[in-house]
């Protein structure tokens, strides 16, 4: 297993954080409309898992909360932002919006507006990889809430049955919209469900990119060897609201403050500084770069043209 590049992980987490904060601000100012779900607080899961992928070979399906997954795969912040602005230069030409974009060259198979919708898709990709003997692995992000959809059960059963090269990564951020995990399931967590399918289930600290990276790398290696799928539950917390304008009546400010103390980025930075692997100057530079990337993305999105209404009926079929 190769080592996680800790500074690369740091830079990606910073970019995701600043990107999501910017998106929330743009919504609040009414500059972006529609809807978007920010992954503030969950950056370590996206980065730890996506850096474990083999670039250009493996693939990953995402969720409605997908900007971070895309950025962690190396997607272009400009094109993500342009998609949010509904512009022609966006990943889906403005057609998809926040919840529907892909970057196939990076193996980013895209976000999904239907909770749980990506689970069978990743499983099917794994089936094709296996049938065509490609030694590729399909990763699959989904939330604690999505694990209560029927397709979760159906997909994991078939993946185990056919020993498919799939890695299921549950981002357990404690809530599905307003629904706390403990009111949605009686088992202690989603990892416990793996036993029902005869696949390994493991829990990882989702606020530690290194822990996520280790767990996902091991599962990917196993899947690539032909030993079948695994389920990894990453324990984390969404520091932001569910989506725009969520007053968060379903949880306390104290609970949020407690999780803010476990902020994955602050923890990461503190450790790198403590272990003398990140100087104050380097830190300033990385933060500056991440902020500049987000600023550039907004500028790019703003000056991109709107999609041409004359193209409305183009591309329904290949």
């Amino acid at each position: 297993m190769s080592e996680l590049d800790e500074l690369a992980a740091y830079r990606l987490m910073l970019t995701i954080r600043y990107f999501e904060e910017k998106v929330e601000a743009l919504f609040a100012q009414g500059l972006v409309h529609g809807t978007a779900h920010a992954a503030i607080g969950q950056e370590a899961v996206a980065v730890g898992a996506c850096l474990a992928m083999r670039p250009g070979r493996d693939c990953v399906t995402s969720t409605h909360r997908g900007h971070g997954h895309a950025l962690a795969c190396g997607a272009d912040a400009n094109r993500i932002m342009a998609e949010l602005f509904g512009k022609a230069a966006g990943y889906s030409g403005g057609r998809g919006g926040s919840q529907l974009m892909t970057d196939p060259a990076l193996g980013y198979w895209g976000s999904n507006g239907i909770t749980g919708g990506g689970i069978p898709v990743a499983t099917g990709a794994a089936l094709s990889f296996k049938m065509r003997r490609q030694r590729r692995v399909a990763l699959c992000f989904f939330g604690d809430g999505a694990s209560n959809q029927g397709v979760f059960h159906e997909s994991l059963n078939m993946a185990a049955l056919w020993k498919l090269p799939a890695v299921y990564i549950c981002e357990n951020n404690r809530y599905a919209m307003s629904m706390p995990v403990e009111k949605a399931m009686t088992v202690s967590g989603v990892a416990a469900r793996a036993a029902a399918y005869g696949m390994p289930g493991e829990t990882a600290d989702g606020n530690d990119a290194a822990a996520v990276y280790r767990a996902v790398s091991a599962a990917i290696a196993r899947a690539r060897r032909g030993d079948g799928p695994a389920l990894i539950e990453c324990m984390t917390y969404r520091l932001s609201g569910h989506s725009r304008g969520d007053p968060r009546v379903y949880r306390t400010r104290e609970e949020e403050a407690e999780w803010r103390r476990r902020d994955p980025i602050r923890r990461w930075r503190a450790r790198l500084r403590r272990e003398n692997r990140l100087s104050a100057d380097e830190d300033r530079r990385l933060r500056g770069e991440a902020r500049a990337c987000v600023r550039a993305a907004v500028a790019f999105a703003r000056r991109s043209p709107e999609p041409d209404p004359a193209t409305l009926e183009e591309g329904v079929f290949a």
């Binding site: 529609g34 057609r95 999609p307 209404p309 329904v316």
Partner: peptide
């Protein structure tokens, strides 16, 4: 609506 999905982009949504 014509036989197309509804886009997120305002320019395309309004056109549809």
């Amino acid at each position: 609506c014509p036989d197309v999905p509804i886009s997120a982009a305002p320019a395309l949504e309004h056109a549809a």
